[in-house]
Design a protein around this nucleic acid. Sequence first.
DNA 1: GCATTAACAGCCG
DNA 2: CGGCTGTTAATGC
Length: 224
Amino acid sequence: MISAARLREIAFWSADLSEQEFEHARRGIVEKAYGKGAYICHRGDRFDSWAGVTEGLVKLSTVSRNGKAVTLAGLRAGGWFGEGTVLKNEVRQYDLVALRDTRMALMDRSTFLWLFENSVGFNRFLVKQFNERLGQFIALVEYDRMLDAPARLARNIASLFNPALYPGLGMHLQVSQEEIGLLSGISRQMANKSLQILESKGLLRVEHNGITVLELERLARYGG
DNA sequence: GCATTAACAGCCG
DNA sequence: CGGCTGTTAATGC
């Protein structure tokens, strides 16, 4: 169980809960730390929690039939995921990797289901979340073949700044070029070049161990 | 050829 | 000093 203040801090959706719902959520959540490079879960594992990243950076990836690693999504602090798997009571369809030292908030399945059954606010949040993710995965379809490295990088970064998934977090993100490369499925060197290209177009600003997005809309559409 | 890995100097915190 | 960045050279598909 975590404190009320902590829940407010790590879960933007908690603002939409009633007092009773909030209390229920609080009692069903624990926080856990993962070291850099650690697997939070493997594909095929049972991982019966709905999860939020409270600190760090997480990669959701899987391996295609021909053995190629594919990143499905990157998640930064503030992001929540796994609602589909928990609702369906399935094993995970992908690997979860901590790209740096990371902390996760884990909500147990029964608490999640209780909120799903009882909270209108929580369901509004879930629908919005499903909607945004659907958009992300539709973009993934064209992503693989049709886009070059800078465009893939641009879309990956844009998804980390999705205002529905990460409300109120601002336009700056502390992230290394290597981490962005890992999320985008390209090398650090390519990430470096791609970032410079995007910066030259005025879409973002490259900083030491970080980026600031200047034109989110254009970034999300870059190359498409 | 193009992207990836390797290697390294310079810079930043 | 340790980690990140920007570049070049070698290597691989």
